[in-house]
């Protein structure tokens, strides 16, 4: 249909799927793109499934409905495997990025994507965020993995913009900001495809 790229984020309440969509949207906007970032609000509680979306385009975006054909899908929680169909609506040239310790080949097999042209990437964003931030909040490293797997944004642009955004929220906790930036960089380097 229209000329825009769609992204879907799957996570659980507390993992920061909505924040990832907002931060990525802001970074893409700062890079001169037209963007949308919005969550699908359900019951808001820790651990409940959360879906968030992005649209990114070189043209103004007028549609205001849910994302149905995401080219990129980022999964923040591997416990969804088997219960949520991540590839729903994805085109053949789609890219799926999953937060898990297993290899892309293993995940591809688990998901039954043997013959599919969809590319699968994996990254252990829990481990990265635990080591860099001190808590298993996989959203920022998943942003790093996503831009590496897709080439959507330049790493330096994402780091610069995320630092600016986090600086507002964590004014008095510079270690949180630096930890998140380190996590993005590590996931960017460690994501496997």
């Amino acid at each position: 249909m229209a000329e825009y790229l769609e992204i879907r984020w799957h996570g659980r309440g507390g993992q920061g799927a909505k924040t990832a969509a907002l931060l990525l949207g802001e970074s893409a906007a700062a890079a001169g793109k037209y963007i949308q970032a919005f969550p699908e609000y359900g019951p808001e509680r820790m651990g409940a499934p959360v879906v968030a979306y992005n649209r990114i385009s070189d043209e103004p975006i007028t549609v205001h409905c849910n994302v149905q054909e995401p080219k990129y899908v980022a999964v923040l929680d591997s416990t969804f495997v088997g219960s949520v169909n991540f590839t729903d609506g994805m085109p053949d040239d789609g890219v799926l990025i999953i937060n898990t310790e297993v290899s892309p080949a293993e995940m591809r097999e688990t998901l039954g994507l043997g013959d599919s042209a969809i590319q699968v990437f994996t990254v252990d964003a829990n481990k990265i965020s635990l080591e860099c931030i001190g808590r298993a909040i996989p959203n920022t490293p998943m942003m790093g993995a996503l831009i590496k797997a897709t080439g959507l944004l330049k790493l330096e642009d994402l780091l610069e913009d995320t630092e600016r955004k986090l600086a507002k929220k964590f004014r008095n906790r510079p270690e949180v900001i630096q930890g998140n930036l380190k996590a993005i960089r590590r996931a960017y380097e460690e994501v496997r495809g």
Binding site: I35, Q36, P60, H64
Partner: peptide, 12 residues
């Protein structure tokens, strides 16, 4: 303005 669709969604 439309709740959530506009109020809670990020746009340029």
């Amino acid at each position: 303005m439309d709740g959530f669709i506009i109020s809670h969604a990020l746009e340029n």
